[in-house]
Each structure stands twice: as C-alpha cells, then as structure tokens.
Design a protein around this nucleic acid. Structure first.
Lengths: 262, 262
DNA sequence: CGGGACATTGATTAAGATCAATTTAAGTGG
DNA sequence: CCACTTAAATTGATCTTAATCAATGTCCCG
C-alpha cells in the first residue's frame, strides 16, 4: 500500500469526481507528516510517528497508517477499543444506534480529528465510524498511549483535553437540538463545516458536502425532506447557493446570525 | 460551618419539607467519608481527603468541603477552572447559555457526580452549576490533580474515564433529543433519574424531583406545558403517579419500553 | 390567610413529519 | 459515448405533534 503519493498534494484523498478545491494547501514533499510540519496535529506527543525534532519517523510496522475506503467502517460499536485514530485525510461519520434501532450521526469528523474516544469509558466503542470518502488514519494503539503517559505528563494532558473537547462539542450540539428550529440547525451545521474547512486551509465559502441529506437529517434530529426544504429556503433568502452537495455561502453574516451558538 | 451532623443520616442535605426517603442509606458514623467507605467515590485516587487505607483524612484546610445553598451557584460560565468538585450530597443543574441567550440545562448532577469537567478544555467553565437544594461538594484543586498525575497513572486514567463518561452521557442525550417524542423523552429522563437514585441507595420507584417543570423542559428541548402534558398522559396510561414533584413509577416495564435508549 | 411561584389544562396555531410523486444526477454496461 | 439503472434530492399535499397564548388551579411560605 503506497499512500504517500496520493497524499502529496492535498488534505484529502480526492476521488476523480471531486477535484481539489481552489485553496487546497500543498505539502512541499510527500515525506514528512503534513500535520507535524504545520503544527496542526492535535496530539503530537501521542503520535509515535513523530520524533522529538518534529519530523516524521518511519512507521515501525504496517499498522501505523490505514486507508479506509468510502462506505467502509474504521471500527464498529461494541468492538474492543484497542486503538485511537487520528484522521489524517478524508472525512467520516460516527453513527450511534440504540437498542430500539434508532440511529443518529453523532459527528462528522474531518482531517485532524481524533477518533475512538468513545471507547475510553468502557473499553468498547459506542459508535461505528464510517468513511464518507476514501480516507487515511494514523493508528494510535491505546496501550502505547497509556505506557507513554507514565513518562510524559504532557501526553496525558493532551488526551484529557482532546476528550474534553469532544464533550464540549456535544454539549454545544445539545443546545442546538434543544432550542433551534430546522433552518437555524442547518445554518449552525454549515457554520461548523465552514469553520473546519477554513482551519484545514480550504475556502470557508465553497463547500462540498461529503454526506447525504439523510446523514445530515440523522445528525440534526430532523427528516431529510426538512433538510432539503431548509436548504431551499436559505437559497431563496440569498444566503446560500445550493447545487446538490455543492454549496456556496453568499451571505456569511446572515448565516452567522441564524446559526450562531457560541 | 458544621456539616458533619447533617450528613450523618442520609445521602443529601434534607430540607425540612422533604424528609429522608424510606430506603435512604445510613452511614455508621459521621467521621469517615461515606463515599470512600462504600466504594462509591468515582475518583478515590484524585481525592486528597482519602488516605491510602481508604479512611478519610482530616481536611488540610478550609476549602476541602463547601456547602452550596439552594439557588446558589458553585461556579459560573467563564470562571477560571481552578477546581473540580465532587458532589457529595444534594443535587444541581448545569446551565449553558449561548451568545443569543438561548438556554439549556445540560445535566442534573446528583451525589457522586464530578463537576467542573466542562472547564478542562479551555481552562474556563462552559456552564453555570446551580444547586437545586442545599448541597455539599468536595473541592478538588485542579493543580493538585495535575501534580498528582505525575506520580500516579491510575489517577490520570480515572480522570480520563470520568471525562469520557460525561461525553458518553451527552452522546446518549443527543440521541434522545434527535429521535424521541415528548413522551419518550420524559420516560427516558425518569429512567435516568430512577437509575441514579437506585445507585445512591434510594428507591428507584419513588422519586422526588428537585427541579421545576421548566428546568426539565430546558433539559429536554421542550416547553414546560409539554412536560406537564406528558406527565399527565403517563399518569392516564397508569405508568406513573404524579403529584407535582412526587412521582411513583407504577409500571417500570412500560416506562422502559417507552424511554429505553441504550 | 393571603401572596406568589409553580403546575395544570384548554383552545388555537405553526412547524415539521409523513406520504407520495417527480426530477436530477451519477454510475454502469453495452 | 450513450442509454439505462439507480441512488439521491426536490417538491407538493396533508396530517400530527408540539408551541403558543391564555386562564385557572394548587401548594408552599411568610
């Protein structure tokens, strides 16, 4: 498996139908870890790929990186939590299913997200993580992290913060589901996506959604028809241009006014 | 301030209007920490009150325990997160307010809950914690925890799990808000309360709610009238007996069927 | 024995769910 | 490369649920 070449030019594994977006960042060379190089790795002290000088070490064995193709799952609810994963490129959805079969998408992780934290409490994952496009993850064996935590207090603190960050994300989403109407939820959702695109170096105005309307609906506690109608209304209000999964934000201020939550 | 006597006989600081419930646990003596003694402290390795032999040490200074009277706040959103708190007795509500003034109750901590985890990510609390009744907390200075984490890997893991536990709680609540109707939400809420009462040694069938209908509504993303109507319908269905804040669960199976989420 | 906060109940309205029919676009294979 | 197949998205009509507005009831507390 040779993934280095694929990753050289952009932050995601592009499939042919979705060419790189205008502002996609370029790594100077395929060799070093892009995240370590740009300081965007959220857990540098947890990653065994990174040496102290910040340059990437060679993977010591075959499991350090893993490609997940579109539709495949990285891990499933109930699996033993032996690894955390850093999403290096691509995007995923985290699905929760309860005993009655009700389903929700808890989040849509993008490049830079730490995956698998939902397994820490009980030792078994609560969610199933499914790739929305061909994606690449760094594998962080949990036993490694624990071992490393002995010597390195910073590593522990980073993990603490990463989990706390996820908690806060859900707390905010909770507020959205508890108090916003459909249009505001969609606005809030798009602001979140837009912001994360921006921190990944993409344009915050031109979005290409990787998920279906159904996925969005399951995420926001609405029905897919309602999602579609909300998009239509935002388009009529000249806040968005919607062409299926291609969105452009025409009026960011209005969008913020609608969906702001912090 | 002498709280030892008040705490001797029950898990909460009873106000005169609410006498101890039938199955309230009894501590043999006011001196040892009830939670340490019964093994119900979720973070024994983080608590400076507990010596290695499991018996309570004397508080080394005045800030080790704090009483919060009904309606008072333990900490407020935006305050610097210098302490975590273990809720030793009583109950609280955690309020989030966003920039637009929308409000939600994120959770209703009861005895045994760890409070203040919402401050770990940024160093400032995200929520305001307000006592629903006179309550008592153990103060856990955050700096202590960090210092202790160097020598004690278990302490770190306990903190990790505590945060992850909170995350999972919100994840589940998210599913409730995203996919349940008003009656199911109330059922789920009551099951949660009931279960926590049971783990505190109280009857899971006889509940005395400490929060208003409005608080419940803010927690579950509904309006207080809808909460009231849901209670009425559950009573008509002979699942509950409702007399204002005094509830008895007549048909636990039916309640589970309605509100089960994991 | 009020006064005021809290809770319940009723009538009406509005938002979103549901059911159903198209429309659009993206693959797929000849 | 184009017709075909299918998944995804949009749109419309109707129904249900919960929100809203308003009045009344109940209980706790001074």
């Amino acid at each position: 498996m040779n993934t280095a070449h694929t990753l050289a030019g952009s932050g995601s594994l592009q499939d042919p139908a979705h060419p790189p977006q205008p502002s996609a960042p370029r790594a100077p060379s395929p060799t070093p870890c892009r995240m370590a190089a740009t300081g965007t790795c959220p857990v540098p002290d947890l990653c065994r790929n990174i040496r102290n000088d910040g340059r990437q070490s060679l993977p010591v064995n075959g499991i350090d990186r893993r490609t997940i193709h579109r539709g495949q799952s990285l891990y499933r609810a109930g699996d033993a939590c032996v690894n955390l994963y850093l999403l290096y490129a691509g995007s995923m959805k985290q699905r929760i299913t309860n005993c009655v079969g009700m389903e929700q998408i808890a989040s849509f992780p993008m490049a830079g997200a730490l995956l698998g934290l939902d397994g820490i409490e009980t030792g078994k994952y609560m969610c199933t993580a499914i790739a929305l496009e061909d994606s690449l993850v760094c594998v962080l064996p949990f036993a490694d992290l624990v071992a490393r935590s002995r010597g390195d207090p910073m590593a522990v603190l980073q993990l603490n913060k990463a989990i706390a960050r996820e908690t806060n994300h859900y707390r905010r989403l909770l507020l959205v589901l508890a108090s916003m109407n459909s249009e505001e939820r969609i606005a809030n959702f798009l602001l979140d996506i837009s912001e994360r695109m921006a921190t990944s170096g993409y344009s915050p105005r031109e979005l290409v959604l990787k998920m279906t309307r159904e996925d969005i609906a399951l995420h926001l506690g609405m029905k897919l028809e309602t999602v579609s109608r909300a998009f239509t209304r935002l388009q009529l209000a000249r806040i968005l241009d919607v062409r299926r999964r291609h969105l452009s934000i025409r009026n960011p201020e209005a969008l913020s006014r609608l969906g702001a939550s912090q």
